[in-house]
Design a protein around this nucleic acid. Structure first.
Length: 291
DNA sequence: CTCCAGGGATCAG
DNA sequence: CTGATCCATGGA
């Protein structure tokens, strides 16, 4: 039985206090395209659901207060990757390129989440050739249709068995388009015990990547997103349309054949290519960073 | 109207 | 192996 978050008082939500620092910025962590179920209220307070765990996050005193009724401290510390020194990570990539330095500043405070495997897989299969607001809507409707009710207008992410109860026609009616059959096949496969998470946690990133490519609707980019945003593979570097444009721009003026991507993915002590990728994506997609 | 969105599956060479 | 084409949908 995992330890529940410290109880402030009987009957109150479990609470995890996270010290304020430049390396923890919920406005960037939760709205940078790596997760789709958190919302920022007009007062700046965040609320979301991870798996079947509803949570709230807001500024409190000299830190951040995470409230989650049933989540363990260990779960949330892992979710927000609190053991990683992001200052040291950024240090590995600072000074290589002035424009990269700018992106690192713009994205400072982002952390790479460790999200549930099944939920992350479905979410990023839905992300293919799609835009973020619509992805959020599709996932929201999926949860409403098959997720566990968790309170007022709040639903868990449906387990594979529950998702498997939705027909392709039902999913298409929810606006899933040609992704509907992928979700059906994924739900059936996960419910049948194929594609156990452990299989992708063992071995090299490249081996895990090859395994993920067998899943319906999972290609190179989505596989990298699953590796990075769920499985904690720091060397994964998802390349989407935004990153392609950004890398092309960064490579301008570089000596022939010397691509910045090669520098970023080169293994090093505090190497975290996926973090750099996310910072570049955030700068390009959210800050309309002109390079 | 066209173009694009955190691409993938399929098929042609 | 690489490259072209099609794929649903909704917003700009």
């Amino acid at each position: 039985m995992p330890r529940v978050l410290n109880e402030q008082r009987e009957g109150e939500d479990g609470v995890l206090l996270i010290p304020a620092s430049p390396w923890f910025d919920p406005d960037r962590i939760l709205d940078c395209g790596q997760c789709f179920r958190w919302r920022r209220g007009p007062d700046g307070r965040w609320s979301g659901v991870v798996g079947n765990l509803p949570a709230r996050l807001h500024r409190r005193g000299d830190g951040w207060r995470l409230e989650s009724l049933r989540g363990s401290e260990a779960f949330w510390r892992a979710y927000f990757d609190l053991e990683t020194d992001y200052n040291a990570v950024e240090g590995q990539y600072r000074g290589l390129d002035s424009r990269l330095d700018t992106a690192l500043e713009l994205g400072r405070g982002i952390r790479i989440l460790r999200q549930p495997f099944w939920e992350t897989t479905v979410s990023f299969v839905l992300s293919a050739n799609n835009n973020i607001p619509r992805i959020q809507g599709m996932i929201g409707r999926l949860c409403e249709a098959a997720g566990e009710p968790l309170g007022a207008d709040c639903y868990g992410f449906p387990a594979p068995e529950a998702a498997a109860g939705l027909s392709e026609a039902h999913l298409r009616a929810m606006g899933f388009g040609y992704r509907a059959p992928f979700v059906v096949r994924l739900a059936e496969g996960f419910a049948a015990g194929r594609w156990a998470e452990d299989r992708f946690r063992e071995g090299s990133t490249e081996t895990a990547r090859k395994g993920l490519l067998e899943l319906p609707g999972v290609g190179p980019k989505v596989a990298d997103c699953i590796l990075l945003f769920s499985l904690g593979r720091r060397d994964a570097f998802p390349v989407d349309t935004w990153i392609k444009k950004t890398l092309a721009a960064l490579d301008q003026g570089k000596p022939q054949g010397q691509h910045i991507l090669n520098c970023l993915t080169e293994p090093c002590e505090n190497g975290f290519a996926g973090y750099v990728q996310q910072v570049l994506f955030y700068a390009a997609r959210y800050q309309k960073w002109g390079i």
